[in-house]
Each structure stands twice: as C-alpha cells, then as structure tokens.
Computed example of a mutant assay.
Amino acid sequence: MGKKQAGIITDEVRELINEVARATASMAYIDGMGGNVNYFRAMESLLFNYKKLQALVADYEGYTRVEFQGKSKSIGSFSPSGGGNVYRTEDDILEELERDKVKAYHRTRARFEEIDRVISLFADRKEFHVVRLYYFGEDAQGEPRPADAQPYTWDDIAEELGRMGLVRDVKSARRWRNKIVNDMAVCMFGKPAAVAAGTFRKERASGRE
C-alpha cells in the first residue's frame, strides 16, 4: 500500500462543516420534540445555510480530507477486549479516519439533496425572489452579490422588487416571505408543519399575529 498524504482541513471548511451540522441537526431535534417545534424557524435555518451546504457538498475532496498530526509510524491504542495496547500504523489510522469522513460526507449530501428538492419546487414562484434576496445573499436575478456586500434590509428588498413591479411595500415583501417559507416547511416537514402553518395564517387573518 502506498503512503497516503494527510491533508489539512482549512479553518473555513471546518467552520462550514460545523454550521451545516448545526443546521441539519434540526431534523433530529424535530423528531425528538414532536409538535413543539417552530417549523417556520426550522425552515429558515435551512434556507440561511443552504448556500453554505451547497458549497460544502460540491467539494468532496475538501470535506473528506483528513487531518492527522501523528509523528510516528506506529501508534499505541488501548483495547478493552484485547487486554492491552494494540499498535496500528499511521496508514491504518488514516484509512479509518477517511472512512468516517466519507460516511459523514454522504450523510451531509443526502440531507442537502432533500433540502434542494424542496427548494427546487418553489424556484419558479414569484415569491422566490425574496428567498434569493433575504436568505441566499443573491440579487433579485439570482446572481451572487460581492462578498463584502451588506445584507439586504427589508426596505432594500421592497425597493428591489418594487423596481421589478412585483411588490408595493415592505409589508407585501414580508407577506411573500411568510407564504413561501411556510409552504416550504410543509413540504419539508409534512403534516405537523401544515397544521402549524394553518394556525399561523388564521392568527394573521384574525389580527392576533
């Protein structure tokens, strides 16, 4: 077996992995919480992290690259069942770490594909312009904005969409956001989110929200 090179994950990629883990962990959280979940906020978390997740799964090599700080050819590890130290080579440890990274990558990719399928269902709706502006950091045409650009405010969003003849004011832009995020949440999380969205809309209609 040839010698393997142990690469180093950059701080930027590590932070992306951590952020995506926090975002996609929302499914496990939801499963454990039953109906006591704000599905609208959970969907917003996925939308805010969608572009980061997209970039992360696009870089298979970066995601699965292994950090290794070992100095010696053989490293001792205690084996409870074996009754002593078991020595493994650096290559053995690297292979195990790489397998774990590959498994984690495929779990993350599966989560991304699930989110991506839901988002793609709404890409042709007029309200999707708000998603691009507010959650994705894009302009109204879906083009990336400069890295140092300030996030759009709701006044900015209303102005952008007003120039396109789509909305009249901030209230309309927010209403579009509420509608499309609730609809996405229903597709993402199913019946409990549908019930929550129905309650939300009734409260807004009655003036309580």
Rank of each mutant, 00 (worst) to 15 (best):
H129L: 11
M164N: 10
F189P: 00
A205T: 09
M188C: 10
E96A: 15
G142T: 12
G83Q: 01
E67L: 09
K73M: 05
Y60N: 08
E203L: 15
V131C: 01
R175G: 06
A25P: 01
Q150Y: 01
M1E: 09
L166E: 11
V20G: 04
K126S: 06
H129R: 14
D156V: 11
R99S: 06
R168H: 08
D11R: 15
N18Y: 02
G142R: 11
L46Y: 11
V131E: 00
I75A: 01
C187D: 01
R14M: 05
L161M: 13
A147L: 12
K191G: 04
G83A: 02
D139S: 10
R174E: 08
S120V: 03
G198C: 07
Y63N: 03
G198L: 10
V86W: 00
D183S: 15
T108Q: 04
R111Y: 05
M188I: 09
E114F: 14
V66A: 14
D100Q: 15
G82K: 15
N38R: 13
G207F: 07
N182T: 14
K126F: 03
K191S: 07
F136S: 12
F112T: 13
G7P: 00
S120L: 12
E160C: 13
D92Y: 03
E138P: 02
N38M: 15
L53K: 11
K51H: 05
E98W: 05
R99W: 01
E203T: 15
L53I: 07
Y135W: 05
A25S: 12
L133C: 03
S172M: 13
D116W: 06
R163D: 07
A25C: 00
V20L: 05
V186D: 03
R175W: 00
D155N: 13
L46N: 06
R174H: 04
G207L: 11
G7W: 02
M43A: 05
E96S: 14
M184A: 13
A42Y: 01
S74H: 10
N85P: 00
F189V: 04
L133T: 05
D59V: 09
F128Y: 14
V20Q: 03
A140M: 14
